[in-house]
Amino acid sequence: NQESVVAAVLIPINTALTVGMMTTRVVSPTGAPAEDIPRLISMQVNQVVPMGTTLMPDMVKGYAP
């Protein structure tokens, strides 16, 4: 099972992602793949992402898996 990126903390809208904001988990439906964490760092979210929420590609500005 592939791990997806999950918010480790509450991420406010327009916040640039840091490694400490993200964790990985096997979830369904799958979100952004765990191996993309290095690409996701410094990208901004376009909505509030509550802690424990799977990071879906459409939540991150300019990100395409």
Results as ranks from 00 to 15, higher is better:
N1W: 12
N1E: 14
N1T: 13
Q2R: 12
Q2H: 13
Q2C: 13
E3D: 05
E3C: 12
E3P: 12
E3Y: 14
S4T: 05
V5I: 14
V5P: 00
V6M: 01
V6N: 00
V6L: 07
A7D: 03
A8N: 06
A8G: 03
A8R: 12
A8C: 09
L10K: 08
L10P: 02
L10D: 15
L10W: 12
L10I: 06
I11S: 02
I11W: 03
I11F: 00
I11G: 00
P12T: 09
P12A: 09
P12M: 09
P12R: 09
I13A: 14
I13W: 07
N14R: 04
T15A: 12
T15Q: 03
T15S: 10
T15D: 00
A16S: 13
A16H: 13
L17A: 02
L17D: 03
L17E: 00
L17V: 05
T18P: 00
T18H: 00
T18L: 09
T18C: 09
V19K: 13
G20Y: 15
G20V: 11
M21P: 06
M21E: 06
M21W: 07
M22H: 06
M22K: 06
T23K: 08
T23H: 08
T23D: 09
T24D: 07
R25G: 10
R25S: 09
R25P: 07
V26Q: 11
V26F: 13
V26D: 06
V26C: 13
V27R: 14
V27H: 04
S28M: 12
P29G: 04
P29M: 08
G31A: 04
G31P: 02
A32M: 15
P33I: 06
A34G: 09
A34R: 05
E35A: 14
E35F: 14
E35D: 11
D36V: 03
D36R: 02
D36T: 00
D36L: 04
D36H: 05
D36K: 04
I37K: 00
I37Q: 03
P38V: 10
P38N: 10
P38A: 10
P38K: 09
P38R: 08
R39D: 04
R39K: 12
R39V: 11
R39M: 11
R39G: 02
L40D: 01
L40C: 06
L40H: 03
L40E: 00
L40V: 03
L40T: 03
I41Y: 02
I41S: 04
I41L: 11
I41D: 03
S42Q: 08
M43E: 02
Q44D: 00
Q44V: 15
Q44L: 11
Q44P: 03
Q44K: 15
V45H: 04
V45R: 01
V45I: 05
N46P: 02
N46T: 12
Q47L: 08
Q47D: 02
Q47P: 03
Q47G: 04
V48K: 12
V48T: 15
V48F: 09
P50G: 06
M51W: 06
M51Q: 13
M51V: 10
M51T: 05
G52R: 04
G52V: 01
G52I: 06
G52E: 02
G52Y: 06
G52P: 03
T53A: 15
T53V: 11
T53C: 13
T54F: 06
L55W: 05
L55I: 14
M56P: 02
M56V: 03
M56A: 04
M56L: 10
P57H: 06
D58T: 12
D58S: 15
M59R: 00
M59Q: 02
M59G: 04
V60F: 06
V60E: 05
V60R: 01
V60Q: 03
K61Q: 11
K61Y: 14
K61L: 11
K61T: 13
K61R: 15
G62S: 04
Y63D: 00
Y63H: 03
Y63P: 00
A64W: 14
A64V: 15
A64T: 15
A64K: 15
P65S: 12
